[in-house]
Design a binder for these strands. Structure first.
Lengths: 221, 221
DNA sequence: ATTTTGCAGATTGTTGACATTCTTCAGATG
DNA sequence: CATCTGAAGAATGTCAACAATCTGCAAAAT
């Protein structure tokens, strides 16, 4: 317990914590895409100097959450519909690969865990509990990508998902699409349970491709 | 011309230039994987203070070229064979997607350019000119990924290629494999020229998968 | 009236100094 | 002889001040 806490502090420097906090603020919607991010304001807010703030921003810049314009400052990245579509395409390719890999190497415990997330989403849909649905939805995707056994794949996938959160059209899922989406989840998980890489690849690719289609259709309305 | 130069300076701050330079030093082999990178030494070398150096390092950290251990310093990232294999798998997925996209949208000029790179590599092989082969090889890959029309895809692909340069086994290509590799290039380009997305996808995926196999086989010897 | 110029305030860029942590190694201890 | 302790030096972490640049607005010029 203590060793764990020490280990936690050991690889979490101040700039890293600050980076995480700024990311939370951006993705939480406190800053909107296009908004300017003021270094001094952040330094004041966290009660530290601008040095660590700037280091955190350089890291966030590489993550693709902000745009830096020299001598002008940093701005929350603004995604066009075309850029969001591009990110979806890359995400689909990576997620399909993750499903394929996991279908090869998944343990029984992995399959059980994935099924439990799907079940939790079933229940959440029945209760109209969107909060839980969103949480479980992310947990399922993260579990698949993490357990696929390719750290590079997981890192790049999660970075793309973060970027897509910048493209928040007021996109409350309709009850229908939520139900359909979880059916896609079921197919993904069962393909993994069947240890069928090709089927898992297709199911995972299809899931993201469908999500992209839904979002883009939503955008045009 | 002047406006271009001004524009060039406008979006290239000192930390960005420093980052590029440090990257060059790492990939150029001046620092070996696992080596410690000393902030003060870099500051002295470039004649600036440690602030911009640290900002550049935070960016490089996200790029995956260095590992940062709080209070200990930064080290050139050391890739295991398994990690390199993982990166190759992700690279294959992204490159296949790029080939697929380019097969859909390539202009005649694009096809001409790709063919010229393949021809240049043919000539380089005939002359045993490995220097030129490597340059043209990278140029072909970069052209495909850049002209695919997905900036996110290109950025992530190029980042992976940079990371793989950290895994330099003394891997001089054998004349045979170079010839075989360029035959794969030809199939990729002709699939694009034929505007056949599925064939291009397969050709591009196969090319990277084969390269991975070659590298891994080389590693075991 | 529109554009240009120039100043004042604010913000970013960079620096050198100070604080903290780590590394190294000599000396003490069992 | 091996291990532990602790102090000196070096490196990283943080800060506050200064320099350079940009923004916004008011006054002047066309």
């Amino acid at each position: 317990m203590l060793a764990q806490a020490i280990e936690l502090l050991r690889d979490r420097s101040l700039p890293m914590l600050i980076e995480q906090e700024i990311e939370r603020v951006i993705l939480g919607g406190e800053y909107a895409p296009g908004d300017k991010i003021n270094e001094q304001a952040l330094a004041l807010r966290f009660g530290i100097s601008r040095g660590p703030i700037r280091e955190a921003l350089r890291s966030l810049d590489r993550t693709g959450l902000i745009d830096t314009i020299p001598n002008r400052g940093v701005f929350v990245r603004r995604l066009t519909a075309a850029q969001a579509a591009d990110i979806y395409d890359v995400r689909a390719a990576l997620f399909a690969l993750a499903g394929q890999c996991l279908a090869i190497r998944a343990s029984e415990a992995d399959v059980e865990r994935l099924r439990s997330h799907v079940a939790a989403m079933d229940e959440a849909v029945a209760r109209d509990d969107f909060e839980t649905y969103i949480t479980e939805n992310f947990a399922l995707h993260e579990a698949i990508v993490t357990r696929a056994g390719n750290a590079t794949l997981a890192a790049h996938y999660l970075a793309l998902v973060k970027q897509l959160r910048l493209y928040r059209t007021r996109n409350l899922m309709l009850a229908d699409s939520v139900h359909a989406s979880n059916e896609e989840h079921r197919e993904m998980v069962e393909a993994i349970a069947a240890r069928d890489p090709a089927r898992a690849y297709a199911a995972h690719f299809n899931h993201v491709a469908t999500a992209k289609t839904r979002l883009m259709a939503n955008h045009l309305t």
